[in-house]
Amino acid sequence: MNLTRRAALAALSVTTLALTAACGSGASSSGGGADISVGLALSTLNNPYFVELKQGAEEAAAELGVKLTVVDAQNDATNQVNQVQTFTTQGVKAIIINPVDSKQAGPAAKAAENASIPLIAVDRTVDDGKVASEVTSDNVQGGSLAAIELGRATSGGVVHLQGIPGASATRDRGFGFEQGLNSGAIKVVASQPADFDRAKGLDVTTNLLQSNPDLKGVFADNDEMALGAIKALGDRAGKDVHVVGFDGTPDGIKAVEDGTMAATIAQQPKVLGRQAVEQAVKAAKGETVQQVVSVEVKVVTKKNVAEFKK
C-alpha cells in the first residue's frame, strides 16, 4: 500500500515536472525582449481550427514583440477558469480567452476583472462578464449562409448533422441554419448529433440514409462531420446529394476543390488569432481598443476555392 502510494506520488511529480517543462518551453518560444506578456487561454488544440487560431496569434505576437503564453483547456470549462486565474497571478498584461462555452466563461471574466487585467474574447463571446474586446466571426450568419448555399445547390430533403449538443457553436450555427432555410426550397428531414466528429458523421449519415434514401443534401455544423458524411455518401456526394460544411479547414477546402463538398463556410482562424493579439496589446498599453471586431465568414465554393488554398 505504502509502496503503491509512493510510486503514485513519484509518477505524479514526474508528470508535473514534465508538464511544467512543456509549458515553459511553449511560453519562451516567442520572446523578443518584451516587457508585455499576454496569456491566451484556448478551448482546445484538439481541432485544426484552433491550431490555426493559435498560429495566427503567435505570428502577431512575434511581429509585435510581445510574449505570448498559450494554455489549452481541453474543452473543459472549469479547467479554463483555473487557467485564467493562474494567468492573473503570473503578471500578464492582457488575457485572451477563447471560451470553451460562452455561457460558462463568466467566472473566468470575473477573475480577470478582479485582477484589473483586460480580457479579450476570441472566436466565442463571453455571455456574462466584462470584456475589453470581442473578436469573433458570426456563427449565426454563417449558418444562414450555409442554408442559402445548400438551397442553391439542391432542393428537397436535407439532413442537418449537429455538433456537440448544447455547445455554443452548435446552437448558433443551427439557429442560423434554420433562419436561412426560409429562403430556399429545402426541407430538413432529420437533425441528429455527430459531435463535430468525422467518424460519427460517417456513422450517423449512413444510418440516416437508410431511413431517408432519397436524401438531397447535408448540412454539417463543421467540416469534419461533413467529410464523414461525404464518406458515407460515396459516389453520391457532389452528384445527387450536396454537402455543405463549416469552418474551411484544409481538408474541407480540398473537398470543395474536388467537388465532393458543395460549399463550406470559411472562418478565418488565423485572422481571429492575429486580431485578438493586436487588441490585447492595445489594451495592455492602455490604448483604446475596438469593442467588437467582426471577422468575416466567407462562402467557399468551387468558383472561389483557389483563394482559400494554402
Binding site: N46, P48, R198, A199, E224, L227, G228, K231
Partner: peptide, 15 residues
C-alpha cells in the same frame, strides 16, 4: 480500422 474507414487519422479520433 477507424482511420481506414475515414481514409484519415484524426487528432481527435476515438475520444
Amino acid at each position: 480500422l477507424l482511420a481506414g474507414r475515414l481514409a484519415s487519422a484524426g487528432p481527435q479520433a476515438a475520444v
